[in-house]
Structure formats: structure tokens, C-alpha cells
Design a protein around this nucleic acid. Structure first.
Length: 752
DNA sequence: GACCTGCTGCGGCGTG
């Protein structure tokens, strides 16, 4: 091997030689043979200045691709006071990872590196604030807190910024938290009188990178340079495996369940599936995505028991958001540093960029909800040279012959899995959600801006947040409505001073003085589960639990000893019985394209090489059922005392259609892929659809009456009904699609 | 029929 100091490395000169001397020396010390593709491309782009999106898969070296040229810019600069690089990351765990990785590099450049989040001591933050310099790794919430509590210092701290880096940009696009961060960055630019502070977004590869560019710079996405890393990869091995659900007693509810009864079996893990998981995963390093916290616990428990039965050490460990940090870190460390084979049974917690090294295979129960998360998960395996990424999807369907309901005979879980793999193979994935009104977060930003500036006029608040800021879709009139709503006797969030300045109102003070003012996402109140002074994790408050009850948690079985309501603590001891914990969730949506692809799979005759024999069997019977029901040519199907509607559209459009039926007083049940209407016939439904197709639609107001839980975002409950209707219609429904969907359905409603 | 994320300031006390 060539010694680095001879200067005869394989590093291409263009990018490498333009880096600052200390950075190059650090690269030599790392003994890198060459820069990664994404680094080669990003370095000149970032050195040139301006906004840049850098996209590549996880662990492709994006962080260094951004930081190396930025450190070079700082080294070439004039050594001004103030923070020079702001690196915003959505997770504390990521910041701790990045800090470990960047510390030697920054040290080599003699540039200070600070981490700044809720677990960092107030003392360290105070020191960094007093003599600001170098690089700060920070969360959006800590940045918000800094602006709100130290509004007068913003100029001093941030005027000399070279650039802001936004890590995991794709995870923030279209979310309330993403809107908040955009708004914060804009507020910093305005407070520092800087036209633009360069923004560098680090993102997974998306279908349409221009959307990421728009998210990075809402006021000028067209000027953003987009760098895409070349993703050679080592190939991909895919398999879909089908399983029939175990037959179950219909009424096994309150029978005196003996503690020895196999809980997992009763909760629907087929025997053959458990055996296959055990056989395929044991002895290797894997991720098994369960889909929900409850299923994660069930599968981890079942696989651990199988280890016990086989007298081998357990190597299956649960990982999800309700487990304590310590429990989760044990699993992460074991995956990253321990040579013993390990399978983490996880929810989406292990999807983001936390450093767990390379795994041999990824497994998933069911199809999941999006192609983009599928892609993200795949990126966790197959990073070592010569080893392909391995993904196995385990799909459970009802037994053949059981359940004559068309929704079961169509094996839609399997069909969705195939449709999603087909989309993945096409290179498609869900685009990020387009920016909505986000009035909940705008309400929060009005409060934050008032605190930062010690008061603001309505005009300047609108200019800063909406005109120059990210809340582009809110015009002056709607902003005035929002302010009136915030000032109403009911809310009292703000009031106006005699000089016309907006100030924090009586109830607003309670919100802004609480320590949880900074995050914009909603939070559940939860109990802590404690065993012998160790916190195992948290349990949602809304699910009642009593002493004596048993539960499965953190991959083991427990009995509740005591529930203390004032301190919200549940004390437990180990036991043999146990039922899975209940967690509550909100549910999300399936993209339109996947629903369309599902119909395509059912209509066609294509055989898929990546599905096993049972799955092929399920596909064949689903296609037979699809043919028998005539679903290729009709969408409205008489069934029992009503009809089934199969529109093959995504969740947002399906929900809109459901609300329209409800507005016409149909007894309506929405499933993931269909709508069931009871006590009616195809003729009546057909007439209704024809009526909508002609443009005679139910009003938004009547449809909104059917929305059971319109309040989703953190401050939604402060919005007036009118404002809430606008948010729901623009962000959560697709009213505009209703006429087109109805006319397509009406034309395929035959037989009446 | 789901998942995930985050947190300041200040008073009071003990210790070097």
C-alpha cells in the first residue's frame, strides 16, 4: 500500500486538493484510499458557496461531504467571532454520534466543536454562548429555545455563520417540525440582516430532488444546487414469503388463561412463521421490523422463548420509542460493537441514521406503509463489499376458505407487498408532502417571535413569518384571522399593547413559560414502568392498567405490582404470564400510486420470481377472486345488505370519498383499500356517484361534520372551526379529487 | 391499521 505522505494516493486531485491543509492531513491519517463519490461532487459545490442539497444513502459519508469544505471555508476566513457552522440534527442520538465522529477532524483544524441539546449541561451551553465560535451541533428545539430565551444575543451568536447544515432533511420535509425549522432559520437570517445564510441539506435520495430543494429554501428552491451520490450498491436480494394465519378460537377473551398458555400464538404469530424467523435470523446480524410497538414486543418475546426452548443464548431484542434510552442503547451497542449475532426487533426507531453498523439482512412483518421507508430499511444492509442487501417480507393472510368476505379473499396484504416491491424496482418512492397551511405551527411561531423580539406588530409578524418566511400559503387576511383567534376571550394567547404591538396574553404565558413550549409536535402523557429502580420504558396513560395484570414489555414478561397515579409510575416484577401492551397511534396514509399498482397486480397474469410458493398460491387465489367478482370492470359490488366500493386510490382520496358518503347519510365503514356501505344497493350508490360526477358535490362544511378527530397537530385545539376546516381540507383531504374519482367510479358501476 | 422526534430558568441546598 502506498504511504499517504508520498502524495501518490488514488485521491482525485480536483476535490481533495482544494480542501484546507489540516483537513487533507486528517484524511491521510484516516488512510482513506479515495473520497466517496458524493464527497467528490459536494466539495467543489459547497466551496463555491450557495445552497446545496447533498443526497446519498445512509452512511455514504454525507456528513463529511458537507463538513470538510465548510471547515475549509472557515480556515480560509478571517477568524471572526461567533458560531461559524450550525449543524441541525433531528435526534439527540445523532448529535452524539456526529460529535464522536467530527471531534478528531475539528481538533485537527483547531476549530471548536460544541454539542447543544437537552442532555448537555447548562454550564457547557453558557460557556459556548459567552465565546461563540466554531461548529455547533444542535436540535431544532434547542435552537428555538435559544432564540426565544436569548433573543437579544441572536446577532452576536449567528452573524458570522458560514452555513447551516440540515441533517436528515428528508425526515423533516412536509412536517410541522420541518416548518418550524425553516421558520427558525429565516428568523435568524432576518435578525442578523443577512440576505441568505448558505444552507446545506443532507438527504436520502428522493424520487424528485427538486422538492427537497424547495424545502431547503422555500423562497428560492430553483437556485439550490442538487448533488446526488452515485449509489452503486452490491445488488439486492428480495423475497416475499406467505403465511396463513393460525386458526383461533373466536371467543378466547375472558376464559381463565393459564400462565403457561402461549400468548404469542393467541395473538396470531403462525407457528411456521415463528419457526422460519428463528431458523433464518438466528446466528446472524439482522433487523426485524415489526410494524408496531405491540408487534415488536410479541415477536421479540416469542423468539426469546424459542431460544430458551432450544437452550441457546437469547439474541432477539426489542427496540422502540416507548423503551427507555438505556434499554435501547444496550441493543444499539450490541449491534454495533458486539461480535455476537443479534437481531433487533424494531419499529421505525432504527430507520434513521443512528450508527448501528452494517447488518446482514433486513426482515419485515407485513408490507409496511411506504416505499420510501422500505428503501431506507434496505439501506441498512448490504454495505460490505460483495454482500448484497437482503430483504425478506413476511406476509400473513387468512386461511384459504375461511372468511368469505371479499376483502379477505383478495389477500390485499400480499398484493400491497408485491405492489410496493414493484414500485421500488421502478425506482419510485413517495414524494414528500407538499407544504400545507400548518396553522398550528404558525400559531407557535407567532408566540416564539413575540418572545424573541419582546413584541411585534401584526404587519411585521406577517412579513417575517409568511411573506419572507415558510408560511407562504397564509395571506394577510388569513393571518389576521389567526391573530384574532389567538386573542379571543377563549384563547387569550396574545393581546395588543396600546402602541399596537402584539404581546403574550394571560393564557399564552402558561404555554410559553412551560418547559415543553419548544417542540411543535404533540406529546402523550405516559406512565414510567420501573423494575428494581431501573426504568424499562413508558406506557400511554389512556390505556387503563391495574395491579395484578400481566404484560409483555422490553422483551420480557412482567406482573404489575403497583400503579401510582400522582407520580405516574408503574412498578413491575418478572412473571411467566403476560399479554402484549397496548399502544395508541394515529395512523397514516398509503400513496395513490401503490393502490393503482395493486389493481394492476390483480388484473395481470405476471408471475413474480421473488415470491415463495405459499405467496404464489395466495396471489393465484386473489386473482381468481378478483376475476369472479368482476372487479376489473366494476368498482361497486353488492355485498350482504349493502355494497363494497373498490376505488383503488390512496388514503387521502379514500378518506375524502368516505366523508362524502357520510355526508349523504350512508352507513359507511372505511377500510384501507375499500369502503363498505350498509343498508343500501348499488343503484342508489350509482346515482349518488353520478350526481357527484356531474359536479353536484357535498359541501365542505357537511363533509367536515363527519370528521371525528380533526385536531391532529399540537395547537389545533386553539384554532377556530373555520381555520380548522381550512387546514383539514388543504392538508388532510383531497376535496379536489372527489369529482374525478366519482366520475371514474360511476362509469364502472354496472348492474343496476 | 403506525411510527418517530424534543425541553429553560431559577431557587434552594450542599460542598470545596
Amino acid at each position: 500500500m502506498q504511504t499517504p505522505t508520498t502524495g501518490t494516493t488514488n485521491l482525485r486531485p480536483s476535490a481533495f486538493e482544494r480542501l484546507g491543509h489540516p483537513v487533507r492531513r486528517w484524511i491521510w491519517q484516516q488512510k482513506w484510499q479515495r473520497l466517496r463519490d458524493v464527497q467528490e461532487k459536494a466539495i467543489p459545490a459547497i466551496l463555491a458557496g450557495g445552497d446545496v442539497v447533498v443526497s446519498a444513502r445512509t452512511a455514504a459519508g454525507k456528513t463529511e461531504a458537507a463538513i470538510m469544505p465548510l471547515l475549509t471555508r472557515v480556515l480560509d476566513g478571517d477568524g471572526r467571532d461567533g458560531f461559524r457552522i450550525l449543524y441541525v440534527s433531528p435526534l439527540k442520538a445523532l448529535i452524539n454520534d456526529q460529535y464522536r465522529r467530527l471531534e478528531p477532524l475539528c481538533e485537527a483544524c483547531d476549530i471548536p466543536l460544541h454539542k447543544w441539546h437537552g442532555d448537555v449541561s447548562a454550564d457547557a451551553k453558557a460557556r459556548a454562548r459567552k465565546t461563540p465560535n466554531g461548529v455547533v451541533l444542535i436540535t431544532p428545539e434547542s435552537l428555538e429555545a435559544l432564540l426565544v430565551r436569548r433573543g437579544k444575543e441572536v446577532r452576536f451568536l449567528f452573524s458570522s455563520l458560514e452555513a447551516v447544515v440540515i441533517d436528515e432533511l428528508h425526515a423533516l420535509i412536509g412536517t410541522e417540525r420541518g416548518m418550524q425549522l425553516q421558520s427558525i432559520l429565516n428568523r435568524i437570517e432576518i435578525a442578523c440582516d443577512r440576505e441568505r445564510i448558505d444552507r446545506i441539506g443532507l438527504s436520502a435520495t428522493l424520487g424528485d430532488m427538486r422538492l427537497a430543494a424547495d424545502a431547503l429554501r422555500p423562497t428560492g428552491g430553483a437556485d439550490v444546487k442538487v448533488i446526488e451520490g452515485n449509489d452503486e450498491g452490491n445488488g439486492l436480494k428480495l423475497q416475499i414469503r406467505g403465511y396463513y394465519e393460525t386458526e383461533r378460537e373466536e371467543d378466547d377473551g375472558e376464559k381463565d388463561a393459564s400462565p403457561d398458555e402461549d400468548t404469542a400464538e393467541r395473538h396470531g404469530i403462525p407457528e411456521r412463521l415463528a419457526d422460519d424467523l428463528f431458523r433464518l435470523l438466528r446466528g446472524h446480524r439482522n433487523l426485524l421490523f415489526g410494524g408496531s410497538r405491540q408487534r415488536v414486543e410479541l415477536y421479540a418475546d416469542r423468539l426469546r422463548l424459542m431460544c430458551e426452548d432450544n437452550r441457546v443464548p437469547n439474541e432477539f431484542f426489542p427496540h422502540h420509542g416507548s423503551l427507555s434510552k438505556a434499554e435501547r442503547e444496550d441493543v444499539e451497542l450490541r449491534l454495533r460493537d458486539d461480535p455476537r449475532p443479534t437481531t433487533a426487533v424494531a419499529t421505525t426507531t432504527l430507520e434513521l441514521g443512528i450508527d448501528i453498523g452494517d447488518v446482514e439482512s433486513v426482515a419485515q412483518i407485513g408490507p409496511g406503509f411506504s416505499v420510501s421507508s422500505l428503501r431506507q430499511r434496505l439501506g441498512r444492509s448490504g454495505r460490505r463489499a460483495g454482500s448484497p442487501a437482503i430483504m425478506r417480507m413476511f406476509v400473513i393472510e387468512r386461511n384459504p376458505g375461511r372468511g368469505q368476505h371479499p376483502l379477505e379473499r383478495l389477500n390485499l396484504g400480499l398484493i400491497q407487498s408485491i405492489a410496493m416491491i414493484e414500485c421500488l424496482k421502478d425506482g419510485w418512492c413517495e414524494p414528500p408532502a407538499p407544504a400545507g397551511l400548518h396553522l398550528s405551527t404558525l400559531l407557535h411561531q407567532v408566540l416564539a417571535l413575540i418572545l424573541q423580539k419582546g413584541g411585534a406588530s401584526p404587519q411585521s409578524a406577517w412579513k417575517i413569518l409568511c411573506d419572507r418566511g415558510p408560511f407562504k400559503r397564509v395571506d394577510r387576511a388569513m393571518f389576521a384571522d389567526l391573530l384574532r383567534c389567538m386573542a379571543s376571550a377563549e384563547n387569550k394567547l396574545i393581546e395588543q399593547s396600546p402602541e399596537g404591538l402584539l404581546m403574550i396574553g394571560e393564557f399564552g404565558e402558561r404555554i410559553t413559560e412551560a418547559h415543553d413550549f419548544y417542540p411543535v409536535f404533540s406529546i402523550e402523557r405516559e406512565y414510567r414502568i420501573i423494575h428494581e429502580a431501573r426504568t424499562l420504558g413508558t406506557y400511554p396513560l389512556d390505556s387503563a392498567i391495574k395491579p395484578g395484570e400481566t404484560l409483555i414489555f422490553a422483551g420480557r414478561r412482567w406482573q404489575v405490582i403497583e400503579v401510582d397515579d400522582p407520580t405516574r409510575i408503574i412498578t413491575v416484577k418478572p412473571t411467566r404470564g403476560g399479554k402484549p401492551p397496548r399502544f395508541s397511534g394515529n395512523g397514516g396514509g398509503l400513496h395513490n400510486r401503490i393502490a393503482k399498482e395493486m389493481k394492476h397486480v390483480l388484473e395481470g397474469a405476471e408471475q413474480f420470481a421473488y415470491i415463495d410458493r405459499v405467496a404464489a398460491d395466495m396471489l393465484a387465489s386473489a386473482r381468481q377472486c378478483f376475476g369472479e367478482l368482476g372487479l376489473a370492470t366494476r368498482s361497486v359490488l353488492p355485498h350482504a345488505d349493502g355494497v363494497l366500493v373498490f376505488p383503488w386510490i390512496g388514503t387521502q382520496k379514500l378518506t375524502t370519498l368516505t366523508l362524502a358518503f357520510l355526508a349523504r347519510d350512508f352507513r359507511t365503514t372505511q377500510f384501507q383499500h375499500a369502503i363498505e356501505l350498509q343498508d343500501c344497493d348499488a343503484e342508489g350508490v350509482g346515482q349518488c356517484l353520478a350526481c357527484w360526477a356531474s359536479g353536484d358535490l357535498p359541501t365542505i362544511e357537511t363533509m367536515m361534520a363527519g370528521v371525528s378527530r380533526p385536531n391532529v397537530a399540537r395547537f389545533d385545539h386553539h384554532l377556530s372551526q373555520d381555520l380548522m376546516t381550512m387546514v383539514t381540507v388543504q392538508e388532510r383531504l383531497d376535496y379536489g379529487s372527489l369529482q374525478e374519482v366519482a366520475s371514474r367510479l360511476a362509469s364502472t358501476t354496472v348492474g343496476y
